[in-house]
Design a binder for these strands. Sequence first.
DNA 1: CGCACTTTTGACGAAGTTCAACGTTAGTGG
DNA 2: CCACTAACGTTGAACTTCGTCAAAAGTGCG
Lengths: 230, 230
Amino acid sequence: MADCATCIVRNRAICASLNPAELAALGRMGRKQKVRAGQTLLWEGDGAPVVANVLEGVLKLVVSTADGREQIVGVVFPSDFIGRPFGKESPYSVTAMTDAEVCIFNRNNFDEFAGSHPDLQQKLLRRTLDELDRARHWMMLLGRKSASEKVASFLLEMSERLEGQGCGVGLNRGAFELPFGRQQIADILGLTIETTSRQLTKMRADGVLDLPSRREIVIHDRAAMEDMAG
Amino acid sequence: MADCATCIVRNRAICASLNPAELAALGRMGRKQKVRAGQTLLWEGDGAPVVANVLEGVLKLVVSTADGREQIVGVVFPSDFIGRPFGKESPYSVTAMTDAEVCIFNRNNFDEFAGSHPDLQQKLLRRTLDELDRARHWMMLLGRKSASEKVASFLLEMSERLEGQGCGVGLNRGAFELPFGRQQIADILGLTIETTSRQLTKMRADGVLDLPSRREIVIHDRAAMEDMAG
DNA sequence: CGCACTTTTGACGAAGTTCAACGTTAGTGG
DNA sequence: CCACTAACGTTGAACTTCGTCAAAAGTGCG
């Protein structure tokens, strides 16, 4: 059982639509679970009947081919929702990219609860619509953009989503730390790790950004970056 | 005003969740509209506050770059839902690929109506979740598959969606007519028209399929096609 | 029949992948 | 605290796939 009253994402997650009594009822159905970086919470094609809210950390949604190629089809942050309500099997794997903590529900229980709480369902609908827009926008990137455009677009989106996470303390505008390595960037962009690395190196050479450490990015020339994003 | 009682997609569209009185109320808000092939119903970035059900025909959802590259991010068939409820502006253009007919609603009216009809909202949620799964599956295709895998996957998906449309009459298993030309196939797959054409020609040469006319496809060797799809 | 449009085909080049080697970083245990 | 190691990242060279450009062939409609 989860303690929703003190939940850190309480106001941003779909739970925000509930009154205290409803929240208590939902809390009784859920339980907190820690997930280590690299650990997989849901397997593609698996019938695992769970959904969850992300409390802490970053997780990826991955689709794979039979021969082992991977495409990351989504990245979820705290307060985001995971899983497939009203579904049979998970259409993708969910794996933690950092140590993470999630609030897990049995899917059938959750589906039923959602069915009798229209406000929750509407929040879920809005979220799903936003995710769909993001996915479709990403389809344009995957299908039609060049390697440099992909990397530039990616960095701009990440900068928006991540800036001010390590907030206040010393991080300037345009500076952020990615929660993942080169291979995972490549898996997001539909590129190889080598191409990704080369593009980043070139951008540094061109003075558009700086790479202080493996996972840190500092965007110097945002205008140039936006031009490159196509 | 639309006459829902005689609507051809009445049982398959989201309207199926409504009782006769509700249906009448929704019908009063909607109106039927014909759209010619090639005509655009909604423009990307436009604030056009409309949503719609497809009654007849096929439409595409398109995202474009500033320099004119296009990626088709969705294809909608009769009984599918179009538009972005609870949104500000349309994240993509909607253009008819064939002559079509849609049942249009003002978005604000629709949003309000949906808010007070949880069953309708749930149907919309389920549909949106399905679309999201489809979009993510498509991201894998765009990001990680080769040209031949793309074409094979595409033909298999279209065969599932289209077979038995021209139903009963003379069309065998594996035979179907695409509602679009080579350029549009290319825009769906993130390829050029030349590459698309070459892949199809090669498949015909290999005896995997036949191309009786511009838009007809006959799959001879489905197993081989599935292998090629990766 | 002729015209506009779509599709196919060919030759060539560029972008990105593959394979291989090397450099760098962070974490572990002496 | 340093040395060692494994994982991660970068770089180079050869190669493949796909895109580009150009032209020919096919299709459908007035």
